[in-house]
Design a protein around this nucleic acid. Structure first.
Lengths: 219, 219
DNA sequence: TGCGTTCCGTTGGGATACCAAACTTGTCGG
DNA sequence: CCGACAAGTTTGGTATCCCAACGGAACGCA
């Protein structure tokens, strides 16, 4: 058999990861069909894990499924990105402000480590590694915020986040913004964070919207 | 067979609704087991729709599932309710402020209709009807906010919301608070909303926390 | 008695085969 | 050009079977 013998990992989790990466990395284009049987055959599994994976990705907002037809990779419109940004601004402000108020030394060290991984990868031009580290920066911040619900939310957002980051060209600029956030969190400077976050998001947002109008993903 | 012939509704949707109501209405207690085979037998369906339903409810945050064991109805701790409140404050503020800025006359009329249904039900002592109308008040507000992502979020939150409302005894007080919100939205008075929402949430929050410490749901 | 270990029944994850409902799509006729 | 219709696809669901992993209780040991 194919990838057997890895670990006790559930097939549905594996399939989810494969499909998610396919989508985020652009190997499955927005609008393309996700047909259970075909995917099951490709990955040497039954339709069941594929079904679960598709549900999960619908929950993460990168797949659209209507009853009794195929699901498709979601096509993000300019409007979707704008909506996402509005919500993200509120959530991330909450996260970083709470993180500033509640972080421990141990947690801060992990946050700094993620930033340093991101910076190193960005400097070396390792695009995917930088994006993953950037995602972790956000996830760790949510943990520092000491609010499980925020972590849960970020967990769902992070796929869309990866998609957005995929559109964000200037990795070094993003790392620099994360440095400023890191320092504000360390100094417990919530006032600075409250005006900094919207700006931070705006830069990634603009890049995504620009890219979108170029490639005309929307219908 | 049992409830066949209703409509083209998907079994998984029906099962989800049944389980959700069981949980929110307290017919399935926090901590009680959700065993696929048993539930499937109870509802005369196969295990698949039950599986999907449980996944959905995990997504809505009212069920906890670990791999390869039974799922359980979530036990909310005081901390969970506090975390939820913090996030909800940010999201709902966003919703009502945007609703105030962006609502149409038609939308406002629907919001008022929901409020009036809530008030009527609360006055008549129809608890469940009042709670449903209160939930719709929030959902319609999210629509008025003109941000699909907010609607999506509320859609996920609404089950937990119903659970919280289940702890909220004074239906008339809640309806009165919704009237104040409704008026502020109508007047596009965002400043008032920004300080009103936290107060509105706090009242429901307190009731939930009080009830929790009485019944000692947590471990 | 207190505690770690072993063992067995239970339970979910997955595979396979099959069917019905309904969604797509292409075709034909007005 | 548009709508009705027919054929092919695809999902949702059922029914079974199997296995690995988990939970819990009995057991043995210190």
């Amino acid at each position: 058999m194919a990838g057997v013998g890895t670990t006790g990992e559930l097939e549905s989790v594996r399939v989810t990861r494969v499909l998610r990466d396919d989508i985020v990395l652009g190997r499955r284009a927005p609008g393309s069909r996700l047909i259970e049987r075909d995917i099951a055959a490709e990955l040497n599994v039954s339709r069941l894990p594929v079904r679960e994976a598709i549900r999960t990705l619908v929950g993460e907002g990168v797949v659209v499924a209507r009853p009794r037809t195929w699901a498709v990779v979601r096509e993000f419109t300019r409007r979707d990105i704008q909506d996402f940004g509005e919500v993200r601004e509120a959530i991330e402000t909450l996260i970083f402000v709470f993180a500033a108020e509640r972080h421990t030394d141990e947690g801060l060290a992990r946050l700094r480590a993620a930033y340093e991984r991101e910076l190193a990868a960005a400097s070396a031009g390792e695009v995917e590694a930088a994006r993953i580290a950037a995602g972790e920066f956000h996830e760790i911040s949510a943990e520092l915020a000491g609010n499980d619900m925020l972590s849960e939310l970020i967990g769902v957002f992070v796929t869309r986040l990866r998609w957005l980051f995929g559109q964000h060209d200037d990795l070094l600029a993003m790392a620099e913004e994360h440095r400023l956030i890191l320092e504000a969190v360390e100094a417990r400077d919530t006032d600075t964070l409250r005006w900094m976050i919207p700006r931070h998001l705006a830069s990634g947002q603009e890049a995504a919207e620009r890219r979108l109008s170029d490639q005309a993903y929307s219908i």
